[in-house]
């Protein structure tokens, strides 16, 4: 094809391409849903849009977002981690124990994150080499972690060890957990879209055999993503423990895990693997946080809370899919 004769179309600028890609994608649908929810709640109760409510939203949603981002990577590569909510409880406990023995907080942090990584590694090794479905492996793991948490804490809550500097960096203060959550989200988005690791994660989830035939180290990818998910979960737990001042062996748990997975799925990550985005997860978690906070502001009784949130989740997902379908993207 002679270059001189062809009409060359200059490729669209990266910025324009980004925007048009976003609009065309399924995430746009759920983004519209999010905007609609915000407008609705704000109209019903102007306190929703107040500065301090935004801080409340950020505080509530940040741990969920971090766990959800970890789950997103795992879900994309075809696995799931049911134990992320329990690493969330264990990690700050480990930090507490290390500090109790007189070690500096930073050492505690490193050890705690290391323990979280070990949990992820175990999940990964058992899933990959013993060929047990990750659903089962992490089911067993979360019970094990629960037991360990209760044992080392004697079942009781503890005052989180901290000092002004450490606390400020790791979660104390308005929005401090949110900065971390947002930063982690951006970092994972970058990994997923701009690195070979991200490509291979999608490949493993979309066509594991094919990926293997192409030479992708499938085992590495799966184990690596398990480690990443647990590390993020543990780190989120440490941030929360700093933020509220208490280290609770019963923190997080399956509730956090389900919200994390739900956030990812509402944002467009397929439960079956092979597709998903971190930006979508961010929107999905935002939807969940807004729903929760909005209903409370409206004075909804706790008994109705679950019912309403459940219905709202189903509707949000349906709407998101519908909008995406109208725009012509495959479900």
């Amino acid at each position: 094809m002679a270059a001189a004769e062809t009409i060359e179309r200059r490729p669209a600028s990266a910025g324009r391409r980004l925007i048009s890609t976003f609009i065309a994608r399924r995430e746009f649908g759920i983004f519209l849903v999010l905007v609609a929810l915000i407008l609705y709640f704000n109209a019903r109760n102007s306190a929703f849009g107040s500065k301090e409510n935004w801080a409340t939203l950020a505080e509530y949603g940040s741990p969920i977002l971090i766990a959800a981002v970890g789950e997103t990577m795992l879900l994309i590569c075809g696995e799931i981690d049911l134990s992320v909510g329990h690493v969330y409880a264990l990690a700050p406990l480990v930090l507490y124990k290390v500090a109790e023995h007189g070690w500096p907080l930073v050492v505690g942090l490193v050890v705690a994150v290391g323990v979280a990584a070990l949990v992820g590694l175990t999940n990964g090794l058992v899933t990959v080499y013993l060929r047990v479905p990750s659903l089962i492996v992490t089911l067993g793991m979360f019970n094990v972690l629960n037991g360990i948490s209760l044992l080392i804490s004697d079942g009781s809550q503890q005052l989180t060890p901290t000092n002004p500097t450490f606390g400020k960096i790791f979660g104390v203060g308005d929005y401090h957990t949110f900065y971390w959550a947002f930063g982690i989200m951006l970092a994972m988005h970058f990994v997923l879209t701009m690195t070979p690791w991200g490509l291979h994660t999608i490949a493993v989830g979309g066509n594991r055999i094919g990926a293997s035939e192409s030479g992708v180290n499938v085992s590495w990818i799966r184990i690596g993503n398990f480690v990443m998910c647990s590390v993020l979960g543990g780190f989120a737990g440490i941030l929360t423990a700093q933020h509220i001042g208490t280290t609770d062996p019963l923190a997080g748990g399956t509730g956090l895990m389900f919200y994390g997975v739900a956030g990812a799925v509402i944002g467009g990550t397929a439960l079956m693997g092979g597709s998903g985005t971190v930006i979508g997860t961010f929107i999905g978690v935002a939807v969940l946080t807004v729903l929760n906070n909005g209903f409370t502001l409206l004075g909804v009784d706790a008994f109705y809370n679950d019912l309403f949130i459940g219905i709202a989740i189903l509707l949000s997902m349906a709407l998101g899919f519908l909008i995406g379908r109208i725009r012509g993207k495959p479900a």
């Binding site: 291979h200 490949a203 979309g206 035939e213 192409s214």
Partner: peptide, 23 residues
């Protein structure tokens, strides 16, 4: 090798598939 199942990842773009592991 060109495999029977093509070893293509449905969720990735054409060019990403062509350069899988050769990025």
């Amino acid at each position: 090798t060109v495999y029977q199942d093509l070893a293509l990842v449905p969720g990735l773009s054409v060019f990403h598939n062509m350069f899988l592991k050769r990025e």
